[in-house]
Design a protein around this nucleic acid. Structure first.
Length: 588
RNA sequence: CGGAGUGUGGCGCAGUCCGGUAGCGCGCUUGCUUUGGGAGCAAGAUGUCGUAGGUUCGAAUCCUAUCACUCCGACCA
């Protein structure tokens, strides 16, 4: 491609509303242009990158045996009512009406439509397993779109849906997608980590997220450097930090702690470790009668060690809290504990369900609120001072230094950007009453899995992970152009023009995706543009080097600090091997 | 949705408090010079000051409403 007949549109300053580096660089390099909140034009340079990601995804989906199709962006509401998600999804799903006031949605995902396709066209176990995928625009009306295409409302996603006749097949389908994802992100040249994930509101049994490692990532990943354990924060299991409860050694003491309601302050005041304190979190659930009317609220007291944080996803798994909970109101707290928040504790409470974190359940001689303003109890011991907790559960967030749940080391935490997610055991076939005929001639329910990759988010995540103060540093596989030829004085020097054009033609013939920057820009402006856009391999051709010996040019990899002088005659071979080499590095 | 803030040329901003007919930098156009890291000089083009209403002799500026956008929080297959 010649730059003069292409469209390069860069900005020196990023628009004021851009706040993350990938968004700024995508806007400045002319990859995207904002059209509305969370909705972007993909400009030519950006679309090239997206197409390259899509191409790799397609190749690996096909290799894994998935079959491409395309479902409409606009879908009828009926299917979503049938699965129950019409009510469940909330305002995040954009609903529209046609001229006859029929309800439609803009698809946020396509489980229902794929289940419907299965219902119409798959009748026999002989047709299974099958896996359909598409690369399609999605719309999720995020409450607060931000970070450019990282959390846009409209975005491009690859979504695949597998159907199997039995658990064994479902496992194989899942593994095939998992392995395809590993291949995809390796080929894209990204540093990433698959982590175990909670299945969340989509439902299902088994789930992994594929996270691109980046300090600016929104998700916290918990992993064990000495084993293959990795999970996201919501899911990461926390074992009890105290193996067995020590016997009581202190007397129960009511200690004045005026004006100190936080665990940190109490620990400082009493000159004890924060890990000797226990914090109280009060939740409420509604008691309903059979008609669903609210009879009253049930109060729950969750106990977490002072230096830990509550994990609400885990709390949601505790029996009795599964159907949703809320934080108790101040009035409810005063009614149940006879005290304002800040000095709450599990001693002497009635009609409160007490849930202790695994670690808390094994603590002894600990400190909690005394349910009296400005007082805490110290030397608290289970069994002696209060009954054993009603429930012991893992309800806290992991912290760095925790033992790995596989017993093979110590956990660390890093941040990531979720770019892919695989699920198995989805409930939609049951919800929609979908069956096929099994070998025994009887109807069976297929096992469904779904597998997403946020194509546009991959692009942003790649930039978050790979950039410097000058601009983007694309991995070769996603770069809009693999190689750029930057002639100095293209309009003036016949020698430069000829050398640049010859090299350009030769590289094109070698099937290398090459851009010839024949805009005749001044060198400073041209090189700044090319570095901003992030083309990984660059050849600079100028009279100065051409006149040296038999004629030299400069090669520079985008990450290199200084250029390498090479012979013009060797340039094609040199670039070809440089491109080969960096692609192999990405795969290693 | 709660809180905060911003809308002035393609981008970044000043002007608003204190009303007097719109300005700066970048970019863009033309010419000349320049050409190995975002050139210089000269001449130019580009604005319903988000929108609607009001106050006033006069509104970017004051008042009211409205829309859009952004940030923090909550939320998030």
């Amino acid at each position: 491609m010649r730059a003069s007949s292409y469209f390069i549109s860069t900005l020196k300053e990023a628009p004021a509303d851009a706040d993350v580096v990938s968004q700024k660089l995508m806007l400045r390099s002319g990859m995207i242009k904002k059209l509305a909140a969370g909705i972007y034009n993909y400009m030519p340079m950006g679309l090239r990158v997206i197409k390259k990601v899509e191409q790799i995804v397609r190749e690996e989906m096909e290799r894994a045996g998935a079959i491409e199709l395309l479902t409409p962006f606009v879908q009828p509401a009926e299917l979503w009512m049938e699965s129950g998600r019409w009510d469940k999804m909330g305002p995040e799903m954009l609903r529209i009406q046609d001229r006859h006031e029929r309800n439609f949605i803009l698809q946020p995902t396509s489980e229902e439509v794929l289940a419907d396709i299965f219902r119409q066209d798959i009748h026999s176990y002989r047709q299974l397993p099958i896996n359909f995928y598409q690369i399609q625009t999605k719309f999720r009306d995020e409450r607060r779109p931000r970070f450019g295409v990282m959390r846009g409302r409209e975005f491009t996603m690859k979504d695949a849906y597998s159907f199997d006749r039995d658990a064994d097949g479902a496992r194989q389908s899942y593994d095939a997608m998992y392995n395809a994802y590993v291949r995809i992100f390796n080929r894209l040249g990204l540093t990433f980590r698959p982590v175990e994930a909670d299945t969340g509101s989509i439902g299902g049994e088994r789930s992994h997220e594929f996270q691109v490692i980046a300090e600016t990532g929104e998700d916290a990943l918990v992993y064990c450097p000495t084993s293959d354990y990795a999970a996201n924060m919501e899911k990461a299991e926390c074992v009890a930090l105290i193996a067995t409860r020590a016997s009581a050694s202190q007397a129960l003491t009511k200690t004045p702690t005026p004006g100190t309601s936080k665990c940190e302050d109490v620990a400082t005041l009493l000159n004890i470790s924060l890990s000797q304190t226990v914090k109280s979190i009060v939740l409420a659930t509604e008691k309903l009668d059979q008609a669903g009317a609210v009879l009253g609220s049930q109060i729950w007291l969750l106990l977490i060690r002072g230096d830990h944080d509550l994990n609400e996803v885990k709390a949601n798994k505790v029996a009795g809290l599964k159907n949703g909970f809320r934080f108790a109101s101040e009035a409810e707290i005063e009614a149940a504990f006879g005290c304002k928040p800040g000095y709450l504790g599990p001693l002497g409470v009635k009609d409160v369900n007490i849930v202790a974190d695994r670690t808390v359940a094994n603590m002894s001689d600990f400190v909690t609120g005394a349910n009296a303003l400005d007082f805490h109890f110290s030397g608290v011991n289970w069994g002696r001072d209060l009954p054993e907790p009603d429930v012991v559960a893992d309800i806290r967030n992991a912290v760095a230094g925790d033992p790995s749940p596989d017993g093979k080391g110590v956990l660390e935490i890093q941040r990531g950007i979720e770019v892919g997610h695989v699920f198995s055991g989805l409930p939609y076939p049951q919800a929609m009453g979908i069956t096929f005929l099994g070998e025994n001639g009887k109807p069976q329910t297929p096992l469904m899995g779904s597998y997403g990759i946020g194509i546009t988010r991959v692009v942003a995540a790649a930039i978050e992970q790979n950039h410097d103060e000058r601009g983007i540093i694309w991995p070769d596989a996603m770069a809009p152009f693999t190689v750029v030829i930057a002639p100095i004085g293209y309009g003036k020097s016949e020698a430069v023009r000829r050398a640049a054009t010859d090299l350009y033609e030769s590289l094109k013939q070698s099937n290398i995706d090459v851009l010839l920057d024949d805009r005749d820009e001044r060198p400073g402006a041209m090189l700044a543009d090319l570095e901003l856009i992030g083309i990984p391999h660059r050849i600079v051709i100028g009279d100065r080097r051409l006149k040296e010996g038999e004629g030299h040019v400069e090669y520079q990899y985008r990450r290199d600090a200084t250029p390498t002088v090479i012979k013009l005659a060797d340039a094609v071979a040199f670039v070809r091997s440089a491109v080969d080499q960096s692609q192999h590095t990405a795969l290693a």
